[in-house]
């Protein structure tokens, strides 16, 4: 493995809704990733991509998003739960790439106003991740009752999320290292 190259793990903020509390969750996760040695990260806000909605798929690929995902060794997707699933525009963005995802792990951070912490959106993501060639991990971060976890300024009010996120990142980074080795050194034939 090329140990000199740091792992790249971008955090995708998966909603464009005004007043989104998921932004605080994404910012928090991004800050936790930044603390990890040997890992570089960036926060990708899908609201800033402004993909067209009169077409879909790889035809509307955004070069910055594509390059960030191609560089990535793992993805963290922060998604609120809207009507028991993920935001349509998040799917629209994810559908714009394919080869960039294959054999890379993805961790999902669910966000909800209610107590379930995005558990249903995380479940809904599984077949989508699989079809994109991403590899799901069995740790998630569930931000339930999000208005009680962060205040309006984004200050974390429940320190338990630091420990939970640490476990989640430990698993994701292990998978990122193993799958990078596989992509780069283990041939299909």
């Amino acid at each position: 493995m090329n140990e000199a190259r740091p792992l790249s793990i971008p955090v995708i903020l998966g909603t464009t809704r005004k007043g989104r509390m998921s932004r605080h969750a994404a910012q928090f996760i991004w800050e936790q990733v930044r603390k990890r040695e040997g890992v570089i990260t960036e926060l990708i806000d899908i609201a800033e991509l402004r993909l067209p909605v009169d077409d879909a798929g790889e035809a509307i690929k955004d070069p910055r998003f594509s390059e960030a995902v191609e560089r990535a060794d793992a993805l963290i997707i922060v998604s609120p739960e809207y009507n028991h699933s993920f935001p349509g525009l998040l799917k629209h963005v994810l559908d714009s790439c394919l080869k960039e995802y294959i054999h890379k792990p993805a961790g999902i951070v669910g966000v909800s106003a209610g107590i379930f912490g995005g558990a249903r959106v995380i479940e809904h993501f599984q077949p989508v991740l699989r079809e994109l060639g991403l590899v799901s991990i069995f740790w998630d971060v569930n931000f339930g009752s999000i208005h009680k976890v962060f205040d309006q300024s984004g200050r974390l009010m429940d320190d338990a999320y630091i420990r939970r996120t640490d476990k989640f990142l430990g698993e994701l980074i292990w998978m990122a290292k193993v799958l990078r080795y596989g992509r780069e050194h283990v041939s299909l034939q």
Binding site: N2, I102, H103, G182, R183, E184, V186, S187, L188
Partner: peptide, 23 residues
């Protein structure tokens, strides 16, 4: 390194994409 072939059909008879990564 060629590490993936993505199938299109249930039988796997049609491959739509092969993916290679630089080590």
């Amino acid at each position: 390194n060629k590490h993936a072939e993505k199938p299109m059909t249930l039988t796997g008879d049609e491959i739509i994409l092969a993916v290679h990564t630089c080590p």
